[in-house]
Amino acid sequence: MGLIELWFRLSEVAPIVEHAMSASEHTKYPDPNDDSPAVPSLIWVKDDGTYLLSNGRPRLLADPTQPEGKAQVAYAQNWGPGTGPEIGYTPVGGDDFTEYIDLTQDVYSGDRLSDLIRKYAELDGWMIFTVGPGQFDISFEPSNPNSYR
């Protein structure tokens, strides 16, 4: 199986990143061998489609008037609700998962992931996850050649 690119519009991801970066508490992937503190992260989820959300607490709500409602998320282009079965046939795989992506990590010559997201969001840019079996890489583009506005 080859690779698939998941394109996330940064105008949708940026508010999620800002929430994670400014939150006073954060959730952490449950690992009994990891006692390090939780850090601001994007949570990449694959279930009914694939999307990103904040690990900040209290959580960022899609509708602030509904405290028990859904979290605000940013779906990958063309992989929204109802696409869970189809994405299962790609390198993303059929099993549901959550992957924590540290926003404070240095990714390119000293730039933190959060800084690159902010930079490309100002350009109405995109974050691309290039996914292969068991691995993924993140890159950025100022525009999406696959987008039809």
Score class of each variant (00 low, 15 high):
43 I>L: 11
55 N>S: 09
70 K>M: 13
149 R>K: 08
27 T>Q: 12
39 V>N: 04
96 D>N: 14
123 L>D: 09
135 Q>R: 13
37 P>D: 15
133 P>K: 10
139 S>T: 14
64 P>M: 03
15 P>D: 14
103 L>G: 00
7 W>M: 05
56 G>I: 09
58 P>T: 12
26 H>V: 05
69 G>Y: 07
70 K>P: 04
34 D>E: 04
64 P>G: 08
82 G>P: 04
92 V>F: 01
144 N>S: 14
5 E>C: 04
101 I>D: 15
34 D>H: 05
6 L>K: 07
45 V>T: 09
75 Y>T: 04
8 F>P: 00
23 A>K: 01
40 P>C: 07
74 A>Q: 05
120 Y>N: 02
71 A>R: 05
65 T>A: 14
26 H>M: 10
7 W>Y: 13
35 D>L: 11
52 L>E: 06
42 L>Y: 11
144 N>A: 06
55 N>D: 10
88 G>A: 05
28 K>W: 04
125 G>L: 05
47 D>P: 01
9 R>W: 14
71 A>E: 14
50 T>M: 00
109 S>P: 00
66 Q>I: 12
114 S>N: 06
126 W>C: 07
135 Q>Y: 12
81 P>Q: 09
135 Q>L: 14
85 P>Y: 05
8 F>T: 00
45 V>D: 04
54 S>R: 02
29 Y>M: 11
22 S>V: 05
7 W>V: 08
104 T>W: 03
112 R>I: 04
7 W>S: 03
145 P>M: 03
133 P>I: 11
1 M>A: 08
99 E>I: 05
86 E>C: 00
79 W>H: 14
64 P>T: 09
8 F>G: 02
90 T>L: 03
68 E>G: 11
139 S>A: 08
30 P>Q: 13
109 S>W: 04
108 Y>W: 02
36 S>L: 13
140 F>R: 03
15 P>Y: 07
104 T>G: 08
63 D>T: 07
146 N>V: 02
2 G>Y: 06
51 Y>H: 12
114 S>E: 10
116 L>A: 01
66 Q>Y: 07
79 W>Q: 05
99 E>N: 01
3 L>C: 09
36 S>G: 10
14 A>R: 09
59 R>Y: 13
3 L>R: 14
4 I>H: 08
